[in-house]
């Protein structure tokens, strides 16, 4: 190697060491001419994108998914579905703070509303980390409430508890199914509450209406070969009169000091039946009339409405 060469090499390597750091700083460095070009324009920074609408935002609160209108869910108004209203009321009885989200059956892991998504704060024990965010279906809500509420009361071990509960879960529920989905109330209750908000497509709506009707018929046909409105209403009437007798002059059912799950279950039906503005109003008032006349049940409903739903009215 000659000195000339080595000199050239030296200068080359020198110039290289001088130039190298610049491109290696980042390949993203904007070439100078382009940078100059862009410097002439003002830089506009867009605000950060919002989270998707469905992303949970209030992770610190329990969220109850129920049938409700958007506005109703914001205000904490009572749900228009008896099963949802029952658990909504029960959680309120037990001083559990929660937010409401309007939803439908397709959103639920169990296929039926309501379900509750517990807050992230409740995961006190590390082993429960994975389980804490699991949704709680309605069948397990009572147990969950017992574990999470400081003021939760055990249900009374009353002998008649199960029997009276069967009145609600069978006789009154059946009459309710009939009156909402099959009687002329369909157009004023089932339609505006369940079908119209689900879709704007007339064909989807029609299918939904058909499916709802079929489901209600199927449920009723399990218990009798023919759906007879008079018998359904008569049985519901007997049930309501039995419930009124059971309540008697007590404040809450079975002489409890605090309202419990049974009161919530009764309220879920009596409130909706007594609510004049439900949907587009009652057309066929047969079932509603059975409650209107029962003073004690009406008072029971008003007591709960005043104490627990005063702010949402």
């Amino acid at each position: 190697m000659t000195t000339e060469q080595s000199e050239r090499n030296g200068t080359q390597s020198n110039t290289e060491t001088e130039r190298r750091p610049q491109p290696s700083r980042s390949i993203f460095t904007v070439p100078t001419p382009i940078k100059q070009l862009f410097d002439r324009f003002p830089l506009l920074t867009y605000p950060a994108n919002e989270l998707p609408l469905r992303a949970p935002r209030h992770r610190d609160a329990h969220v109850l998914y129920i049938f409700a209108t958007e506005e109703g869910a914001r205000n904490g108004a009572p749900s228009y579905n008896p099963a949802c209203l029952k658990w909504q009321t029960y959680l309120k009885f037990n001083d559990i703070p929660f937010r409401l989200v309007s939803s439908n059956n397709h959103a639920s892991p169990s296929g039926a509303l309501p379900f509750l998504l517990p807050s992230h704060e409740s995961e006190s024990i590390p082993t429960e980390l994975s389980r804490a965010t699991q949704p709680v279906p309605s069948a397990k809500l009572q147990r969950w409430t017992m574990n999470n509420s400081s003021s939760a009361v055990e249900e009374p071990g009353d002998l008649r508890y199960e029997a009276y509960l069967s009145l609600l879960d069978h006789r009154i529920r059946r009459a309710w199914l009939y009156t909402v989905y099959l009687s002329p109330n369909t157009t004023s209750l089932a339609e505006p509450l369940y079908i119209l908000p689900s879709s704007t497509n007339p064909f989807v709506r029609l299918t939904l209406a058909h499916e709802l009707r079929r489901a209600a018929e199927k449920e009723l046909l399990k218990h009798s070969a023919v759906i007879n409105a008079d018998i359904l209403y008569k049985e519901a009437d007997e049930a309501f009169s039995a419930l009124e007798m059971a309540l008697g002059d007590d404040e809450w059912f079975f002489g409890n000091k605090k309202p419990g799950l049974f009161d919530a279950s009764v309220f879920a039906y009596t409130h909706l039946l007594l609510d004049e503005g439900l949907g587009k109003g009652w057309v066929d008032t047969s079932l509603r009339d059975k409650v209107v006349g029962r003073r004690k049940l009406v008072q029971h409903r008003e007591r709960i409405l005043k104490a627990y739903y005063a702010d949402s009215a």
Partner: peptide, 20 residues
């Protein structure tokens, strides 16, 4: 079709359906 027996006595008004 399921047989439904009903005597509609308590109907005050009818509300037209908004479905097709």
């Amino acid at each position: 079709d399921a047989v439904i027996q009903a005597s509609n006595t308590n109907i005050s008004t009818t509300i037209p359906s908004s479905l097709p």
